[in-house]
Simulated assay, not measured.
Amino acid sequence: MPCVPLLGLPLPSPVCDSMETITTATSNLQALPRSCSPIPRTQRGRMKLLGAVLLAVGLLSTAAWGEQHPWPDDPSQTCFFRMLSSLDSEFCRGDLEMIYPELGGVGCTYIPKCHQYRQRISREWGSPRVRYPQAEKNKKYVLMLVDPDAPSRANPKNRFWRHWLVTDIPGADLKSGDIKGHVLTDYVRPTPPPRSGYHRYQLRLYEQPAHEAIALSPEERISLGAWEMENFVEQFRLGSPVASTQFLTKYYED
């Protein structure tokens, strides 16, 4: 019978012989059936040596691939998103959606380190898309993104660090996720300091009282950090958030 590999096609004698060599080198495999014509002893020795070398190179390449993937952003690499702990997840209320186009929804999650997501959210990506399906079209809203853990959660002496503040957002825009309003603070990317642990980035949505003109004081405009958010909310009678969500991330090299 001719030498027949797995694909069911006959092979010439040299190829068939080298396949036998590889099979012999991997003793846990069964030898392939063969009735190849004999070839000189010297040529058989060379073919066996070549087959063994190729097998060794293949095994070494496979091992190196598993330990050091040259393309860390290969979409085939599995990347797990971990949900927040029960204590932090309680902040997420009202189905407020926070979506980075390059990443997806980040509400109530830790930003994973894989695919350089932590680095990109701190250095590359612009403001997220915000959507609130329950928004009322005839009302306006105030949106803010703050970090209550500046410079760290253990010592938040500069809370609340203001990363984004937008007022006069029409409810129709919130329902569609296309935010338009009066920007009091331009979006500032989350940039946790090195070795400061995880920071919470809290997105808060308030219903804006009718005919209320909201503005920052000159002192508030100068500094983003140590913002007295509670006083701001009380001053403009914003009340409690109608919806809120947050994600946690830390310095991308930690």
Rank of each mutant, 00 (worst) to 15 (best):
D178I: 10
G45K: 13
E230Y: 06
K140S: 06
L6Y: 03
G66Q: 11
L7K: 03
R204K: 09
R129K: 14
L6Q: 08
A150S: 11
S27F: 05
G105R: 03
S196T: 02
V166N: 01
T249P: 11
Q208F: 08
R120P: 09
S223H: 02
L50K: 13
P33S: 10
Q77N: 10
M19A: 08
E230S: 12
S61H: 14
R82E: 13
T78S: 13
R44P: 07
L84T: 11
A63I: 13
H115D: 07
T62R: 08
S217K: 08
Q43G: 06
T23V: 11
T167L: 03
D168E: 06
Y206W: 06
Y117S: 03
I169G: 00
P218H: 03
L49I: 12
L238P: 01
P101M: 13
G104K: 06
S86N: 14
S35G: 04
V166E: 03
N155S: 14
P194G: 09
E207N: 06
V233A: 00
N28P: 07
Y100P: 02
F81S: 01
Q235M: 09
P33G: 00
S86C: 07
P70I: 01
E228N: 08
A64R: 10
S37L: 13
M229R: 05
R46I: 07
Y100K: 13
V183G: 09
P112G: 00
W65A: 14
Q202R: 10
W164H: 05
R120C: 12
I222S: 00
A172P: 09
L29W: 13
H163M: 14
L87N: 15
D95S: 13
P151A: 15
Y141I: 05
M47R: 07
Y206S: 00
P218W: 03
L9E: 14
F232D: 01
F80H: 06
I214N: 07
L7S: 09
I121F: 06
W227F: 04
S127D: 15
Y187P: 02
R44D: 11
V142D: 00
P218G: 01
L84D: 12
T109S: 06
Q68M: 08
L49G: 13
A172W: 11
P12K: 09
M1G: 12
G225F: 10
E234R: 05
V130M: 14
A25M: 13
S37N: 02
M1N: 11
S122D: 12
L55G: 00
P5M: 08
L49M: 14
Y100V: 10
I99H: 11
L84F: 07
G58D: 11
D178K: 15
A135Y: 02
D147L: 02
F80S: 08
L184F: 06
L59N: 03
F236A: 10
E212K: 11
I214R: 09
H199Q: 09
L203R: 03
E207P: 08
H182Y: 08
R237G: 07
E219A: 01
P75T: 07
L248Y: 04
A150F: 04
P218C: 02
R189W: 04
L103G: 09
L238K: 00
K137E: 07
L7G: 11
P5G: 00
T42W: 06
N155K: 03
E136Q: 12
I99S: 10
S86R: 11
P209E: 05
L103K: 08
P148M: 05
M144R: 07
E67A: 15
L9G: 01
G126Y: 15
D178W: 08
Q68C: 04
C114Y: 03
A52P: 04
K157F: 15
L29S: 13
